[in-house]
Simulated assay, not measured.
Amino acid sequence: MNRFDDAEIAAVYKVIAERRDMRHFLPDPLDPALLERVLQAAHMAPSVGFMQPWRFIRITDTDLRLKMHALVEEERVNTAQALGEREDAFMRLKVEGIRDCGELLVVALMDRRDAHIFGRRTLPEMDLCSVACAIQNMWLAARAEGIGMGWVSLFDPLALSQLLRIPADAKPLAILCLGKVEAFYPRPMLELEGWAKRQSLHDLVSENTWCDGNSAVINQPIEGKRDA
């Protein structure tokens, strides 16, 4: 009796499968009520110890948006140089839509996180995992609403913190581009561009002990393997 109906279940799996990290946007503004719904979806995410470590900064100043774009462009060049033989291929990729998107947000880890011990004593990075869950909620909600979202991680966290006056013990994790799009990519953009391809799930799942992708122990459907 706790199960959703078939149409609702299908919708969940559909939005997961069709979520895309978008880079191409239309400049049209978003309805404030729509932005509120997407942010509320983020705020409904699970969090370690219910600490709710996400903080959102909405960027409405055009000059600030351009300064953020400059930070990303600087890191884009540095990343390209670090990639060595793939530098030229990387530089041909579109990696952000900061100047084009209808809404620009920065998501950061809260300050004073050390006060939260529940679930973080041995895995302090669980606060970061919690923020990632919030961002995924946003992504799925945005896709269901028919708007694109792109997660930009090419920036120096300290430089962005200084620009936005983020406290020293907080940390920006994402620049999020949200907005209307002409169309969603039929497959992930980096797959379409030949940068990488999705791995086989069965190469990434093992049973009881660690196995790498070349010696995965699962050679039959996951549901077909059970303890005796």
Score class of each variant (00 low, 15 high):
residue 2 N to M: 11
residue 6 D to T: 13
residue 7 A to P: 12
residue 10 A to M: 07
residue 13 Y to V: 06
residue 18 E to G: 01
residue 18 E to P: 02
residue 20 R to L: 04
residue 23 R to P: 07
residue 28 D to Y: 15
residue 30 L to R: 04
residue 31 D to W: 09
residue 33 A to N: 11
residue 34 L to A: 02
residue 35 L to N: 04
residue 37 R to S: 07
residue 47 S to A: 09
residue 49 G to I: 01
residue 49 G to V: 01
residue 52 Q to I: 04
residue 57 I to K: 09
residue 73 E to L: 09
residue 77 V to H: 14
residue 81 Q to P: 06
residue 84 G to I: 07
residue 87 E to P: 13
residue 87 E to V: 11
residue 87 E to Q: 15
residue 87 E to M: 14
residue 88 D to Y: 11
residue 90 F to W: 13
residue 101 C to S: 07
residue 101 C to W: 00
residue 107 V to H: 07
residue 112 R to I: 02
residue 112 R to W: 06
residue 113 R to Q: 10
residue 113 R to H: 08
residue 115 A to F: 10
residue 122 T to H: 15
residue 126 M to D: 13
residue 129 C to P: 08
residue 133 C to T: 04
residue 142 A to R: 02
residue 142 A to C: 14
residue 146 G to H: 01
residue 146 G to N: 02
residue 150 G to Y: 10
residue 150 G to V: 03
residue 151 W to T: 03
residue 152 V to N: 05
residue 153 S to C: 13
residue 154 L to K: 03
residue 156 D to M: 03
residue 157 P to T: 07
residue 158 L to H: 09
residue 160 L to D: 02
residue 167 P to I: 02
residue 167 P to E: 04
residue 169 D to N: 10
residue 171 K to C: 08
residue 172 P to D: 04
residue 176 L to T: 02
residue 177 C to D: 10
residue 178 L to Y: 09
residue 180 K to S: 07
residue 184 F to L: 00
residue 184 F to C: 00
residue 185 Y to F: 07
residue 185 Y to A: 14
residue 186 P to G: 00
residue 188 P to C: 06
residue 190 L to R: 13
residue 191 E to K: 10
residue 191 E to Y: 08
residue 192 L to T: 06
residue 203 D to V: 01
residue 205 V to N: 02
residue 206 S to K: 01
residue 206 S to H: 04
residue 209 T to Q: 11
residue 212 D to N: 11
residue 216 A to G: 14
residue 216 A to R: 03
residue 220 Q to R: 12
residue 224 G to N: 08
residue 224 G to L: 02
residue 225 K to S: 13
residue 226 R to W: 07
residue 226 R to G: 05
residue 228 A to C: 11
residue 228 A to Y: 14
